[in-house]
Design a protein around this nucleic acid. Sequence first.
DNA 1: GTAGAACCTTGCCCCGGAGGTAAGGTCAAA
DNA 2: TTTGACCTTACCTCCGGGGCAAGGTTCTAC
Lengths: 156, 156
Amino acid sequence: MQLVTVGGAAEQTGLSAKAIRLYERKGLLTEAERTEAGYRLFTPDDIAVLHFIRRAKALDLGLEEIKDILDLQRGGEQPCQRATAMLDAHLADLDRKLADLRRLRESLRNARRAAATARRDGNPAVVCQIIESASTSPTVAHPKGRRPGARPRRRD
Amino acid sequence: MQLVTVGGAAEQTGLSAKAIRLYERKGLLTEAERTEAGYRLFTPDDIAVLHFIRRAKALDLGLEEIKDILDLQRGGEQPCQRATAMLDAHLADLDRKLADLRRLRESLRNARRAAATARRDGNPAVVCQIIESASTSPTVAHPKGRRPGARPRRRD
DNA sequence: GTAGAACCTTGCCCCGGAGGTAAGGTCAAA
DNA sequence: TTTGACCTTACCTCCGGGGCAAGGTTCTAC
């Protein structure tokens, strides 16, 4: 049963030592045992949890969500139901992201084409036309309505 | 020539006032004129730049990159060549992201399926199997080699 | 036995791209 | 005059750490 320090845990899991300390601090890991000198000692169980975290992160789960799953599991409950719900949510999210990115890709391709054309035609656009031509905005900011009026007076 | 305050500029561009101040502070906008009271006054040109920024942001360019383009343009140069290079880079990046996300999506679907099966079979996995089964890691962290040895001594 | 490398510790500031809030100044309309 | 909609700056927060400082510990080589 080798106990390892952060560096060893990092090596075994492909995470950074800093990240591992962060996970402990955020409660994803139970607090590690310490040597007399204060070095953390991670058990094979800890390493397994770290591997779990790494995989979960690869699935784009946030640390908070991963913690939720781990807490449930540590509480003796079966986190699968909760976890599947999370995964469903992420799946839906992912589909949206994919669609957005595909649109974005199209915008970029169009922009590139327009830029190439403009340059070939020797058309020195006033403001770089490249991005002007890319129309659609995948993610729209909050509109936040505002009444007109309140026209400012200049400093003179 | 209406000059407008941040609120007006925000309204016209769909950006938040906060974001606009940030852009000015980061040098994407030249410092706006002020009223005696210190209110910013944006010219139609500023508004055009803000529209440009918004479109560029929609193409996932970072503020620093947008600033680079704008600086070039303000320097009287044609930023198109530089901008197309950026767009190419982003396009390649995007393709990678898309591929990653598609793989991720597959992982999630598999994970879900595995979870459903496990639950149907009444199989109470030791650690929630859901994520265990998802193998591939789209983004890999830095390996950072490390010599073995340095085995810690336990506190006892 | 001791130097020095290679670990480890905590703590703090930094990134992007803002959002939120505070504490206060300004301006136009009723 | 007062209200309230606007504006100002400054600082804290988010996420997931990276980087560095300043110091303690342990291992290896001599």
